[in-house]
């Protein structure tokens, strides 16, 4: 076993343990399951490093020539999954921003309606910059 293998396996095992440790801290089921899955992935990476022939064997069974190609395809799939999850998170965030912007708009209008003599809140960035 080469030095690279030893170091990489140690790193992967460490990451797996770390992920699971974090997963156990989580209260919500959904993020915990995702973290457990990531832990498994790190474990699989460690196993593949320890027995490189296993991936070549898997590649042959799947009808893909080389082990490196299997890894490439898996990486692309994982990339797509990550992109999808991120765009979901982005969507949720956008909707939350809209709710905040809406509540702020209504709250400010109600504040100015109850105190008509008060100066209107400075909302324009230009107005702020115009100061000395």
């Amino acid at each position: 076993m080469t030095t690279f293998q030893l170091v990489a396996i140690a790193v992967c095992l460490g990451m797996a343990l770390l992920t699971w440790a974090v997963a156990l801290q989580r209260q919500n089921v959904a993020p915990r399951q995702v973290l457990l899955l990531w832990g498994l992935l790190w474990l699989a990476a460690a196993a593949a490093l320890a027995v490189p022939d296993a991936i070549t064997y898997l590649a042959h069974r799947l009808g893909i020539g080389r082990g490196a190609d299997v890894l490439l395809y898996l990486a692309v799939l994982a990339g797509c999954a990550v992109a999808f999850r991120l765009s979901m998170a982005q969507r949720r965030l956008e909707q939350q921003v809209t709710v905040l912007v809406r509540e702020l708009a209504i709250a400010r209008s109600e504040a100015s309606a109850t105190a008509p003599t008060a100066a209107p809140p400075q909302t324009s960035p230009d107005a702020v910059e115009a100061g000395p």
Partner: peptide, 24 residues
């Protein structure tokens, strides 16, 4: 009566804001 979104959120969002305000 003017309500102001501090960020541009789109026409659908703005209408929903106006509707929520009108209902209140």
């Amino acid at each position: 009566m003017v309500l102001r979104h501090v960020l541009n959120r789109g026409q659908g969002a703005a209408l929903q804001t106006g509707i929520a305000f009108a209902l209140r």
